[in-house]
Simulated scan of single mutants.
Amino acid sequence: MIEDWKHFLLPYQQAVDELKVKLRGMRKQFQDQSAHSPIEFVTGRVKPVESIQEKMVRRHVQEDRLEQDMQDIAGLRIMCQFVEDIYQVVDLLRERTDITIIEERDYITNVKPSGYRSYHIVIEYPVQLVTGEKRILAEIQVRTLAMNFWATVEHSLNYKYQGEFPEAMATRLKTAAEAAFKLDEEMSEIREDIQEAQQLFSHGRGAEWTKSAIESQEDQNDQVERGNE
């Protein structure tokens, strides 16, 4: 039995905190070069104990296999403006030497039956503890803002219906998912114009407002992530 969950989860919280700083730092590097950043904002959370225990029962995960078999105890989410940005972020993550990619799941090309779209990457990340290095698994989800809006709504409804959606609800959710992706496709069509306009805005009076808005959004989404489990 895990008797001290706070002690068990400490390395995961450290990993989330460090990765948020590093991923947000990538965005700042693009901004420093006056280039379009494929990263809009980054959030992260450690899965609450109740959610871990529920998933252990649902997925038949044994306690002595928890660290190996549950890949999303530490979770990061990278939000992008465009679908093309998602794949650029994935390429950037593949090039990093401070993480090891264990698995990739492309639910954008291979859409789930529910309509869910996102790009999932399971990584191994080394955390430096006073007792030495500990390598833990973490999951990074990369998605557009439209994909995230749909997934957040679906998650809330899933909680209400305990995974058993009425047929009419499931159909409407899938239709909404297709509409959200259609929006992403339309935005991609005018991506160059959008990016040019954003560059002009970010160098004008909107620069400080944009920075403040993104940081505020990240703080709010960190709170939402903790509450959505």
Rank of each mutant, 00 (worst) to 15 (best):
R27W: 05
K182M: 06
E95M: 13
Q81F: 08
T100E: 15
E208H: 11
T100P: 03
S188C: 09
V111R: 05
Q81K: 13
M70S: 11
E225F: 12
E63R: 09
Q71E: 14
K20M: 12
K134W: 06
R27D: 10
V122F: 07
A35M: 14
L23T: 05
R105K: 15
Q71S: 11
M147L: 07
A168D: 14
G132E: 10
L183Q: 05
Q217S: 11
E185D: 13
E124F: 12
K20H: 08
R65N: 13
E189W: 08
K55Q: 06
A179S: 07
S114D: 04
F201S: 14
L157C: 04
A213K: 10
L129C: 13
Q220G: 12
I99Y: 05
Q14T: 07
N110H: 12
Q195F: 08
I214S: 02
A197N: 10
V224Y: 15
Q220R: 14
R172I: 09
E124M: 07
G75N: 04
Q13W: 03
Y119V: 02
N228Y: 04
R59E: 09
F165E: 03
F181Q: 08
P113S: 11
Q88A: 15
E167G: 01
L19C: 12
Q198F: 09
H36N: 04
V153F: 06
M187T: 01
T97M: 09
K22M: 11
T109S: 06
K134G: 09
E185N: 08
L137Q: 09
A176F: 01
H203Y: 13
D222R: 06
A176Q: 05
Q195H: 10
R172H: 10
H155T: 06
S212M: 08
I39W: 06
S114R: 05
E40F: 12
R94Q: 14
G204S: 07
T97W: 11
P113T: 05
E54L: 13
Y12V: 00
V61K: 04
K160D: 04
T43F: 02
E218C: 08
L66A: 08
D85M: 12
W209E: 09
R96I: 03
K112Y: 05
I73P: 00
S37W: 01
Q14W: 05
V16T: 02
A177V: 01
D72G: 02
S202G: 06
A197Y: 11
N228G: 02
A197F: 12
E139P: 01
D32K: 14
P48L: 10
M147K: 04
D91R: 15
H203N: 13
K20G: 01
K22E: 13
Q198I: 06
T171A: 15
H60P: 01
S188R: 07
A213F: 12
N110I: 02
D85R: 03
T175I: 07
L9G: 08
F82N: 05
H36K: 10
S118Y: 01
F201P: 05
F82Q: 03
